[in-house]
């Protein structure tokens, strides 16, 4: 489990430029799936099983992309200005390191400012790659970078960049490897461009026209931040009731909770006032798709050092495998 998560987190894949992570995942899942294909938006779609009587066509989505930086200007002095792809938080930038898709590494810092307590906007930060002039600079406008931060094994918990949402990708890969008997046609979609607004999931949901949609993503926790949030690290995967962009179908929530109870998987219910997942795109696709989300609690989301609990991950795997292996009954409580 850890090895897979480690491998996936370390591959750069900023929104819109997911080819490296996609090829890695494609190689890993090849032996387990009937076919894979890549669509116009770069989504990787893998089909497992066929629909038996009483079965459903289920779309399961985790996103491959991570938040990233895109070069907007090279200064005469060789400093690299950038813009963000996805929700990059300025407070995590100064002193950080990045790696470009062409392998160039650099450090981030900001323009001088007088009010130390104020966080500057992204436009006042730059990447210093050690170039002495614009001519000497090995990157150019439009080049992409991601946080450079190694995987840290802390025992029960692990930390890395891009756990959002490579741990969801890992979860999906391991589920693909485990689901042996399913009455359903399972369409696993490794989505692109979630961090900029679930754009990959939007087009994938349209093409696949499934009966049911499940998104796998991380959810922020409030256990140590001094804010009132009910989801905590280490208390099991979170079943989403709602977030900012999405009210999960109550029947889907009910089905997930019932299954978790039957499988004796510890779980939490999630009501989130920030962020959303690919489930929002699925719900509104075509004539509508009943959809929900299973979340892995995660500390420090969108920082270079996100953290998850491996027990939460293992429980999520048990729950997801269980959900997809049996007949699905969708009923409201």
């Amino acid at each position: 489990m850890k090895e897979l998560i480690k491998q996936l987190t370390q591959i750069p894949g900023p929104s819109g430029y997911e080819s490296a992570i996609r090829e890695t995942i494609r190689e890993i899942i090849k032996p387990y799936v009937r076919e894979t294909r890549v669509d116009a938006m770069g989504n990787l779609i893998a089909q497992v099983g066929t629909k038996a009587p009483g079965g459903m066509r289920v779309m399961v989505a985790a996103h491959m992309d991570e938040i990233g930086l895109i070069v907007s200007h090279i200064e005469k002095k060789g400093l690299v200005r950038f813009s963000n792809l996805g929700g990059v938080l300025p407070r995590y930038l100064a002193g950080g390191r990045v790696v470009f898709l062409n392998g160039t590494r650099g450090v981030i810092n900001s323009d001088r400012h007088d009010e130390v307590s104020k966080i500057q906007p992204i436009s006042q930060f730059f990447i210093d790659i050690g170039a002495i002039s614009e001519k000497d600079c090995p990157v150019k406008i439009g080049d992409l970078a991601v946080f450079d931060r190694e995987f840290l094994d802390l025992g029960k918990r692990v930390s890395s960049k891009a756990l959002d949402d490579r741990c969801g990708c890992a979860l999906m890969i391991e589920t693909i490897q485990r689901v042996k008997q399913s009455p359903h046609e399972l369409l696993f979609v490794f989505c692109t461009q979630e961090e900029v607004g679930s754009r990959g999931a939007t087009t994938a949901a349209y093409q696949l026209d499934a009966d049911l949609g499940i998104a796998l993503d991380v959810t922020p926790v409030g256990d140590i931040l001094g804010v009132k949030m009910q989801v905590n690290l280490g208390e099991g995967p979170a079943i989403k009731v709602r977030d900012v962009g999405h009210i999960a179908d109550p029947a889907v929530v009910n089905w997930m909770v019932r299954t978790a109870r039957e499988l004796k998987v510890p779980h939490q219910l999630e009501v989130l006032d920030v962020g959303s997942t690919d489930a929002r795109a699925m719900q509104i696709s075509r004539g509508g798709m009943p959809s929900g989300a299973l979340s892995i609690p995660c500390r420090y989301v969108h920082s270079p050092s996100e953290m998850i609990d491996m027990d939460d991950y293992a429980h999520a795997l048990t729950l997801l495998t269980g959900l997809l292996s049996r007949e699905i009954k969708l009923e409201k409580k």
Partner: peptide
């Protein structure tokens, strides 16, 4: 977010 209007009109 006008979920119903999007989906019903499409259908």
């Amino acid at each position: 977010r006008t979920v119903g209007a999007h989906t019903s009109t499409f259908e």
